Amino acid sequence: MVTETRRAEVLPWITTAARIVLAAILFWAGWAKVTEPPALQKQAVEAYQLLPASLTGLVGYGLPVLEIVLAVLLLVGFATRFVAIISAVLMAVFIGGIASAWARGLSIDCGCFGGGGAVAKGQTKYLSEIIRDVVFLALAVWIARFPRSRASVDGLLGI
C-alpha cells in the first residue's frame, strides 16, 4: 500500500517526466512546422477545410509559434497548470480536426510534425494519429491535475 508521504514524493517526479515529454513533443511539432516555408504551413491548415481562407494563414503561421512557446513554458515549469490546460485544449482541437477530416472522407496528412496536405487515398493514418494525440492529451491532463513538479520555476516561486 502506498502511503500518502510516498505518494507526495513520487507524484512530482511523474509530473516532471510528463512535463519534459510533452514539452519535447510540442517543441518537435512546432519546430518541424516553423522551419518549413510559410506556404506549406498554410497548406497544412487549408487541407482540413475547416477554416475560412482568411484564417488559414494566421493559424498556419501562429500554431508552430504557440507550440514552441508552450514547450518552453512546460520545460521550465512556469505557469504549469495553465500551460497544461492550454496544451490539453490544443490536443483536443487536433483530435477533433483529425476526426473531422476522417469523417468527411478527406485524404490528408495531419501535418502534426510538418508537412501536411493532400495524400493519396489509403495513405492516411487517422486512427494512429488520434491515438497518439489522446496519449498527448492524457499527459497534459495529468500535468494540469498534478502541476507540482521538480526543477520548475513554479517551485522556485512557491506557486
Rank of each mutant, 00 (worst) to 15 (best):
V134D: 07
I85H: 06
L26Y: 14
A88D: 07
A47C: 06
S87V: 08
G117N: 05
L22Y: 07
G96Y: 08
L106E: 03
A88F: 10
A118Y: 08
Q43K: 15
S100C: 07
S128M: 12
V65N: 06
F27S: 05
L73N: 00
A71L: 07
G96A: 09
M91S: 01
L50H: 06
A144P: 10
L90A: 13
A144V: 14
Q43L: 15
K33A: 10
L55I: 05
G111F: 01
L73H: 01
F27A: 11
D133V: 04
E9M: 09
C112T: 02
A138G: 11
S100W: 14
T124Y: 04
A29S: 12
L137A: 12
E46K: 05
A32V: 03
L55E: 09
W13S: 09
G111A: 05
T5Q: 11
S54C: 05
A32K: 12
L58D: 09
M1W: 10
I143Y: 04
E67P: 04
L70D: 00
P12V: 04
A53I: 07
V72H: 02
A88H: 07
L55M: 14
V134Q: 11
G30V: 05
A92H: 01
G105L: 14
G77N: 04
R81M: 11
G62V: 06
P64D: 09
I20F: 14
R7P: 02
L63K: 02
I86A: 15
R145F: 08
W31A: 15
S100R: 09
L75Y: 06
G116V: 00
V59D: 03
S128W: 11
A53W: 06
V83E: 02
V65A: 13
Y48C: 01
G122V: 10
K121N: 10
V76N: 00
T15A: 12
F136R: 00
I85L: 15
A17R: 07
G97P: 02
G97L: 03
F82K: 10
K33D: 01
L75F: 13
L75P: 03
F27W: 11
F136N: 07
T5W: 11
T15K: 03
A71T: 05
Q41F: 01
R81Q: 15
L11N: 04
G116C: 02
W13A: 09
L22D: 03
W31E: 08
L106Q: 10
R150C: 06
V89C: 14
E9R: 12
Y48P: 00
S107N: 15
A88S: 15
A23H: 04
S54H: 08
M91A: 04
A8C: 03
I86F: 13
